[in-house]
């Protein structure tokens, strides 16, 4: 594990990705303690104050400090995206490996259903689900997880099909192992590398999707300082106070980039053939 980490940070993408993620993690954990102001503190004299000494990233229409709101809002954005991705990846991976192992008509049935779900765009799917489940951050997480699972199942299945033909899986079948053991202990550990890479890249999509849902008003609800919601609120005052829009957008972009870089770094670090 430590060896993997060293290999990861030896590459520029990996190093930048890990550094950015460390920063985000610190914000998630200690955001409220580190923030200069309380996120809900209203200051009528400081409405739309431009970035400067008083408010580093400026203030919004109620005079709330944007930096503080961002730091506190990290908690309600990044972990949600992570949970959604983890749940989606886990479901997708198990479906994909199971489908590859079972093969034949069952595989065909699972994958065609999967294709049908995949044909619906992710955002539309998430909107559909939220509209049936009801508004709220928790439901948005479930919606994103379900929207992600089919893509993950496809990626996993293609890798698992190769693993299925490996002799150690055949050996397990020949000695009479059960399907659960073969799927979870023989096959799944060997498809982990591509799953990990794919899901780190997908976290960035989840951050954006979650922000989009909040922006559209079906995710986190005001007065939460979720980043997408902050963008939605600041939109009306775009010409008066563009910083209200730029700061949360930049935070979303930075998080997405950080996870993308980590994914790229992991892809290289997990490839043992690249021993240079």
């Amino acid at each position: 594990m430590t060896e993997l980490f060293i290999r990861l940070i030896r590459r520029p993408q990996g190093l930048v990705g890990v550094a950015l993620l460390a920063l985000i993690a610190v914000t998630c954990l200690f955001g409220p303690a580190l923030a200069p102001y309380a996120p809900e503190k209203i200051d009528f004299l400081g409405r739309f104050r431009s970035p400067g000494w008083h408010n580093w990233l400026g203030a919004d229409e109620f005079g709330r400090d944007i930096l503080s709101r961002l730091m506190v809002g990290a908690r309600s954005t990044v972990p949600m995206a992570l949970i959604a991705t983890l749940a989606g990846s886990a479901v997708g991976a198990i479906v994909g490996v199971g489908s590859a192992y079972l093969g034949g008509r069952i595989d065909e049935a699972i994958m065609r259903t999967n294709d049908a779900v995949m044909a619906i765009p992710g955002l539309l799917m998430a909107l559909l689900l939220v509209s049936t489940l009801g508004n709220g951050a928790g439901n948005a997480v479930i919606a994103i997880a379900i929207a992600f699972a089919p893509g993950m199942a496809r990626v996993t299945r293609s890798v698992a099909l190769n693993i299925r033909n490996q002799d150690y899986v055949k050996a397990a079948i020949a000695r009479g192992e059960g399907a659960t053991w073969i799927i979870f202990r023989e096959m799944l550990p060997n498809v982990m590398a591509p799953i990990v890479i794919e899901s780190t890249i997908r976290v960035s999509f989840a951050v954006m999707l979650f922000a989009t849902l909040s922006f559209l008003g079906v995710g986190a609800q005001p007065p939460a300082s979720e980043w997408g919601l902050m963008v939605a609120d600041a939109r009306q005052y775009m010409y008066q106070a563009p910083w209200g829009l730029i700061a949360p957008s930049a935070a979303i972009a930075l998080t997405a980039i950080a996870f993308n870089l980590l994914g790229d770094g992991l892809r290289d670090a997990l490839n043992p053939r690249d021993e240079r």
């Binding site: 490996q166 050996a171 000695r175 202990r185 060997n190 982990m192």
Partner: peptide, 25 residues
Amino acid sequence: DMNAAYRRDVQIIFQHPDSSLNPRQ
């Protein structure tokens, strides 16, 4: 029809040792 007893009594060894041992175990 191959029950546990048959599976135990008839074992197979494969050609490629690289692929017949699970690399993650």
